[in-house]
């Protein structure tokens, strides 16, 4: 039962990621990334992380990807041009990514017995929910990092506003000295 759930959503996630890689239009890539994130939310839930499943849907699919789609539409991004600007990416990147994947899979498969198997819905079955435990730690032991992230978000908002703001046209100012030695500043409008 849980294996069927895992296989369906893992296949959906891999299909979405491959579609993300193969599509040439950015909006198609963005929408297939939403599929990946939603199926990952289901997998989080099956691992007993309900809070993270909800946060994944709200934060990633809801906020971050909407921002990406908004930027793609704002900049009117068309299909990618096929430029081969970096041969190093092809010749070192593809074998490198394959090597990383093979190494990780080898380690995970060889440690498969030690890692054990998952229990649908987690281990907190005595009436407590996950979010209680998370908030207990987050508001006692990790209170300072939690508050620091709010400052981080504030700085990110300010940075985004400053960077994306349309700069006012700098008025060209020319200065010269007239006959009496007074500096005259002319503004070109």
């Amino acid at each position: 039962m849980q294996l069927a759930l895992f296989i369906i959503f893992a296949a959906l996630a891999v299909a979405g990621a491959l579609n993300f890689l193969l599509q040439r239009h950015p909006i198609n890539s963005a929408l297939s990334l939403v599929v990946v994130m939603l199926s990952l939310a289901v997998l989080y839930w099956s691992l007993g992380a309900e809070f993270l499943a909800a946060a994944q849907v709200i934060v990633y699919s809801g906020a971050v990807m909407v921002l990406f789609v908004f930027v793609v539409m704002l900049l009117n991004a068309g299909e990618e041009e096929r430029t081969t600007g970096s041969r190093a990416a092809y010749f070192a990147g593809i074998p490198g990514a394959a090597a990383v994947f093979c190494l990780l899979s080898f380690v995970f498969l060889s440690e498969s017995k030690t890692l054990g198997s998952s229990n649908l819905g987690g281990y907190l079955n005595d009436g407590t929910v996950n979010i209680v435990e998370i908030s207990k730690i987050l508001f006692t032991r990790l209170l300072l990092p939690f508050e620091v992230t709010s400052i981080l978000i504030l700085v990110a908002i300010l940075g985004a506003v400053v960077l994306a703001r349309k700069e006012p046209d700098p008025k060209v100012v020319t200065s010269s000295t007239d006959a009496a030695g007074v500096i005259v500043i002319k503004e070109k409008v």
Binding site: Y90, V100, S117, S118
Partner: peptide, 28 residues
């Protein structure tokens, strides 16, 4: 009962696809 290693291998697949698309995509 799904082995935890399946989840980890899925994560490795997704990470490798992410690395590949980071290197091969030409749109910022």
């Amino acid at each position: 009962m799904v082995p935890i290693s399946y989840y980890l291998i899925l994560a490795a697949v997704l990470f490798s696809i992410g690395v590949l698309s980071f290197l091969l995509k030409r749109n910022v």
